[in-house]
Each structure stands twice: as structure tokens, then as C-alpha cells.
């Protein structure tokens, strides 16, 4: 094991951290920065509950040694909220009743945001395909897909995604 000095830009703020070589980005976000939005579900790239954004791209933070993320710009689910206001995807997840136990929701919001930013003209097939790595054990997905489609409309009407 070795120790490393790194700088992460998390939700717009540079964070200087000392991390172990085998520490995961997910654990650093949760345990050192207390950003517990991203969830630890499986740790093996199956569930996408740990999804964060690197720039505008969704990535799984359970697959990234924190050292490898040195210098990256990361957005966590908390970072989608600006001045107390949810972004369009988060808000539509609430509106459409797409949340039951809520464990998958932060990951859904992250991947959904990547989806809407990549293609605000997405149709249902595109959204289902885009979200295919995110597991939900409660909702049956229908409401989640509806929420993301609604967020696409919101985005086109100028709402922040």
C-alpha cells in the first residue's frame, strides 16, 4: 500500500485529499467528503447505484481507484442540486413517483442526467437502452423511464439538467 496526494474537483470545488492506493473513488466521496448520495450496491459494476458524472459522462465510482481520478471533475447526486433546487431529472423522478425504497434513485438521477445531456431528443427506446445498466428492485422501471422522458421535455423548455 502506498499513500498519494490527489486533487478532486467535486461538484465544482477542488478538494485536496490523501488517499491509499487501494481506496475507491466511491469510498472517498462517501467517507472522506461525506457525500453519501452515490451508493455502494454491489462493487462489481452490476447495479450502477454508485454512478457519478465525470464531466458529462456517467461512470461507476466503485470501479475507479481514487488515485486514478486525480484532477478529474466529478459531479455527485448532491451536485445536481443548485441553490436548493433539484435538476430536471431529479425533480421528474419525484413528480412521476419513480421512487420507492430510493436506493437506486441517486444512480438513476446520474445516468438519467447523462442521458438527457447527451440526447434531449431521446425517445423511450433510447432511454431504456441508456438506462439498461441501472438496477431497480422496486419500481418496475416504467415510472423511471417516464420521468427521464419528461426531463427531456423540461430540458428543451430551458430547465436545468
Amino acid at each position: 500500500m502506498s499513500m498519494h496526494e490527489i486533487t478532486l474537483i467535486v461538484n465544482g470545488k477542488p478538494q485536496k485529499l490523501t488517499v491509499k492506493s487501494n481506496e475507491l473513488l466511491l469510498n472517498v466521496l462517501r467517507d472522506k467528503l461525506f457525500l453519501t448520495g452515490a451508493k455502494y450496491g454491489c462493487g462489481i459494476a452490476e447495479c450502477s447505484a454508485c454512478t457519478v458524472l465525470k464531466g458529462d459522462r456517467s461512470i461507476m465510482s466503485c470501479l475507479v481507484p481514487a488515485v486514478a481520478a486525480d484532477g478529474w471533475e466529478i459531479t455527485t447526486p448532491e451536485g445536481l442540486v443548485v441553490d436548493g433546487e433539484l435538476n430536471a431529472v431529479q425533480e421528474e423522478l419525484v413528480n412521476k413517483g419513480a421512487i420507492q425504497c430510493g436506493f437506486c434513485t441517486p444512480g438513476m438521477a446520474m445516468t438519467g442526467t447523462a442521458c438527457v445531456r447527451e440526447n434531449p431528443d431521446a425517445d423511450e427506446a433510447f432511454v431504456r437502452d441508456y438506462m439498461r445498466g441501472n438496477y431497480c428492485r422496486c419500481t418496475g422501471y416504467q415510472a423511471i423511464v417516464e420521468a427521464i422522458l419528461a426531463a427531456c421535455e423540461d430540458a428543451k423548455n430551458g430547465k436545468r439538467v
Binding site: 459494476a45 450502477s48 454512478t51 465525470k54 459522462r57 456517467s58 461512470i59 461507476m60 470501479l63 475507479v64 445516468t111 447523462a114 442521458c115 447527451e118 437502452d129 441508456y130 439498461r132 445498466g133 441501472n134
Partner: peptide, 8 residues
């Protein structure tokens, strides 16, 4: 896989 995996 899925888009998120493909980003990495």
C-alpha cells in the same frame, strides 16, 4: 455492456 461502462 451499457453506456456507463462504455464511458470507461
Amino acid at each position: 455492456a451499457d453506456p456507463t461502462n462504455r464511458h470507461s
